[in-house]
Structure formats: C-alpha cells, structure tokens
C-alpha cells in the first residue's frame, strides 16, 4: 500500500510539471495548428539559462524564472515571426513544412547548446535539491512540492489571461476560428507570435522548475518534446484543460510503470499510452469533458 501511495504521490507531483510542458505545446497547437517539435529543446535552453544563472551568478532557480521566462518568450516570438510565419505564405504541396521547420529549429538549438556547454551532464545542486519531508510513510520531495505550487500559480495566471484579457480572448478566438477572428478585427499574425511566446515561456518555467531535481545535457530536449506531444494527444490537441489532465496522467503512468513494471520501460509507457489513446479515444480527454 505504501508503495502504491508513494508512486501515486510522485506521479502526481511530476504530472504537474508535465502539465506545464503540455499546456505550452497545446496552446501553440490550438492557435497555429502545428506541432511544435522544438518544444523540449526550448525547455532545454531554459534549463541551461537557469544553470548559468545558478553557477555563475548564484541566482536561485526559482528566482531565475523571472529571467528565463522573458528570454524564452522573446525567442519564441522571434521563431514564430521570422521562421514560421513566412512559411504560411509559401505555396507547397505538403502542409507539414512548419512542423519540419520546428525540427530544424530544435536541431539548431540543441547543437548551439552542445557547442557552448559540451555534451557533459550538468546539474544544479541547491541546498534543497534532495530535501524531503514525510507524511506517514510517504516521502514528499520538497522541490517538487514547491514546483507544484508554482505550476498552480502559473496555470491560474494563464487561465485568467486567456479568459479575462483582450489578448487572451483574441487567442482563444483565433484558435476557434481563425477566419472569423480576422473578420472581427483580430490581428491574427500578432496573436500567433504572442501565442508561441507564451508557449515557450511556459515550457521555460517547467525547465527552470525541473532543474533542481533533474540533470541536464543538450539532447534532453527530445525526451520532453516526446512527452509534450503525448500529453497533447492525451488531452486533445488544443485543449488547455485537457493538457493538465494529460500531464498528470502521463506522470502517474510513468511513476506506476517505473514502480511496478521496470525502470527502463518508463519511456516506452508514454508511447504506449499515445497509441492506445489514438486507438480508443481519438480526440483525447477533450472529447470526454467537452472543453
């Protein structure tokens, strides 16, 4: 029973972070209708920024959220404005050019980081990295609990932004029906890069929150890109609420898989879920909750 509860707790805590990764991706998916395969790589960049802030400037990872979120927002805006938007105007046979472009961007990001920091494993060891507290027999990792707080806060801010502000409403309108939004006077091009910026900033936050308990090397991005698209498919492409459920489900599945099946199957589980969802629940949780 303790083992079960332990897996449940660590899965939930991790799932919160995954949700943050997934929300960013699903926002981009919803508005631009493209899959951002550079998503994990953006997270990796943010992790390196946090790493540099910590090792050379001594800034705590949680404080460096204030640095890496704006930086990644900017990177996201630049990517969307100068690399992805021009592709819309180009006439091609295949509509997947933008997706392929994100793969290229991901490669450039990974290699740039490998060039600067080499392929060595790095980690940020803060005083609280290994801190835990116990409730009964269940251990809670302190950084993960703090992370969950941040995740809740950021998600709340995001929902407030999407529901209450003009820009947020424009984003939702563009996601629902781009042509209608343009007719209503929404500057859809501006919306696309703001959305990409927000998506990048969210994944940047996930990176900075994760770094105290994780390790870091340039190829880590691919792992999280994969998780992000599994979450998106799970939640239903374009659904932010779905992404939260998707993230938590993936976190739980990984935790239980690692506990009850075998450690090395952790990565495979996400992919198996992916195929199962495509088979039995195409459209993801979105179909169940209608959000």
């Amino acid at each position: 029973m303790d083992l079960f509860l332990q897996a449940l707790v660590s899965g939930l805590l991790r799932g919160g972070l995954y949700a943050l990764v997934g929300i960013g991706m699903t926002l981009i998916m919803g508005v631009m209708k493209i899959i951002n395969l550079a998503h994990g790589q953006l997270m990796m960049v943010s992790m390196y920024i946090t790493f540099v802030c910590f090792t050379s400037l001594g800034i705590d990872p949680y404080v460096s959220l204030l640095i890496c979120m704006p930086v990644l927002f900017l990177i996201g805006v630049i990517i969307q404005k100068y690399l992805l938007n021009p592709l819309i105007r180009v006439e091609t046979i295949l509509p997947e050019n933008q997706v392929l472009m994100t793969v290229g961007i991901g490669m450039v990001l990974t290699e740039t980081m490998r060039f600067i920091f080499t392929s060595d494993y790095k980690s940020v060891k803060t005083s609280y990295s290994n801190a835990t507290f116990f409730l009964g027999n269940i251990s809670f990792s302190v950084p993960l609990v703090i992370d969950l707080g941040f995740v809740t806060l950021l998600t709340w801010v995001l929902f407030w932004f999407l529901n209450k502000t003009d820009t947020g409403k424009s984003i939702r309108a563009t996601a629902q029906d781009k042509d209608a939004a343009i007719l209503m006077g929404v500057n859809s091009e501006k919306i696309t890069y703001i959305t990409f910026g927000i998506g990048s900033a969210l994944v940047a936050a996930a990176g900075a929150l994760l770094i105290p308990i994780y390790y870091l090397f340039p190829d880590i991005g691919g792992e999280f890109t994969r998780r992000a698209f599994v979450i998106c498919i799970l939640g239903g492409l374009g659904s932010t609420v779905g992404a939260i459920f998707g993230g938590i489900t993936l976190g739980l599945a990984e935790a239980f898989g690692a506990t009850y099946v075998a450690m090395e199957f952790e990565d495979v589980i996400g992919l198996v879920i992916f195929i199962l969802v495509l088979l039995f629940l195409p459209g993801g949780f979105r179909r169940l909750i209608k959000i």
Binding site: L87, L100, V103, G104
Partner: peptide
Amino acid sequence: TKAHVMGFGILVVVAILFLPNGVVG
C-alpha cells in the same frame, strides 16, 4: 568544423524557407 550538425540544422531551416518545393520542383 565542430559545429557541423548545427550547420546541418541551419540548412534544414534555410531549405524549407527558400526551396519549399525542392530543386526539381
């Protein structure tokens, strides 16, 4: 020379931007 994979990635980006239908197309 060291940054060859990066160059390759940049090539991907450039090829899609400017030659979306390929050399033959």
